[in-house]
Each structure stands twice: as C-alpha cells, then as structure tokens.
C-alpha cells in the first residue's frame, strides 16, 4: 500500500486544477461543470467550490450525472449497479462542458458518461477532468484534458480515492 496523495498535497492539486479551468474558461459564462455519479461527485463538489470561490460574481452551473443506464456492464457481475441521482437544472445546448470523474482507468465509464450527456442536448465542447489518470489501462480511446496525477500501474493494482465527506479523510492510495 502506497499513498499517492495525502490531505495537503491533494488540496494543492485541486487548487491547481481549478486554476487551470479558470485559465481556459475565464469567466465561466458559457461553461458548466458536471460530476459523474457516484464517485466523481466528491471531486466535482470540491472543484466547483474552488472555482466558485475564485469567481464570486458568477454563479457557476454545476450538475451531477448518473450513467448507470448507459453502462455496458450494468448486469455483468450478476448484481445490478446502484442507480444514483441525476441533477441538472440547466440546458447544456451550446455549452462548454467539463466532465469530472475521480479515476480514469479503462475509459468505459467516460464513454457511458458521454452517451448520457448527449441525451441532454448538443454541447459546443466537452472536456474531461480527472484526479488520477491510469495511463496504461485504457480500453477505449479517451484522454483527459486536466489531470491531477498520472500514474503508471499494472492491471491488478488498485487505486483507491478516499474523501473526507464519505471516508473521514482525504487520501489517494495505491493497493
């Protein structure tokens, strides 16, 4: 077990990611942040808070998207996946969308996420922000635009992301 991030480093990285978003999207007038349920939303909550604190005058549109119904493995393990809540009270037509998820691994969740997203309309542009990019494990051609940390690990290793809200502490560990 090896820690990749501990509390303070994680906060620095999240701040950096939030600044990168502001650098590219400036006033966030036409940009929305969407976290992928269930695990991406802890990251997207933090990123949204940070960007919002940098731009106190604009109200940043923020949604959560459940992708269960779009997955190609919803029934593969003999157990149905838990359905989570989708909250998107804005229109994504013509918007710049930043999709947020915690770990980019095979790329299949993001593939489902894109399918789900497009059922809400036609965004002008979609970007992907992830905390951890497992570079060598992709099964579909999907690449992130913003990366907290890229890690090169073998298939049977696991990356576990812990969040204070759910697990009592902020930490990313390699198992």
């Amino acid at each position: 077990m090896k820690p990749l991030f501990i509390q303070k480093e994680l906060d620095i990285t999240l701040t950096r990611l939030a600044y990168q978003l502001v650098e590219n999207h400036m006033d966030f007038e036409n940009t929305v942040i969407i976290g992928l349920q269930p695990r991406g939303i802890f990251l997207s909550d933090r990123i949204h808070q940070k960007v919002q604190s940098f731009l106190p005058k604009t109200k940043i549109a923020y949604g959560k998207l459940d992708i269960t119904f779009y997955r190609d493995d919803f029934n593969e393990k003999g157990q149905l996946l838990q359905v989570s809540e989708t909250q998107m009270d804005f229109n994504i037509e013509g918007k710049h969308v930043i999709l947020v998820d915690d770990v980019l691994y095979t790329g299949r969740s993001i593939r489902s996420g894109l399918d789900a997203l497009l059922d809400y309309g036609r965004p002008a542009h979609v970007e992907l922000l992830v905390l951890i990019d497992r570079r060598f494990n992709r099964e579909v051609p999907i690449q992130p635009d913003y990366v907290g940390m890229a890690v090169d690990v073998i298939d049977n290793q696991k990356v576990k992301v812990l969040w204070k809200e759910r697990d009592g502490k902020d930490e990313v560990i390699l198992l």
Binding site: D66, T68, F69, Y70, F74, V83, S84, E85, T86, D115, A116, L118, D119, Y120, G121
Partner: peptide, 20 residues
C-alpha cells in the same frame, strides 16, 4: 420506487430513451 424516481428524471429529458 427509488429506481422509478431516476427513470422519471429520464422521462423529463429531451431524449427520453436510455440504451440499458
């Protein structure tokens, strides 16, 4: 009932169909 609530949200979307 909980799952139905999520499907109700699907039915409010512009595209009311999922590939499940």
């Amino acid at each position: 009932l909980k799952t139905a609530a999520q499907f109700k949200e699907v039915l409010q979307r512009p595209i009311k169909k999922v590939p499940t």
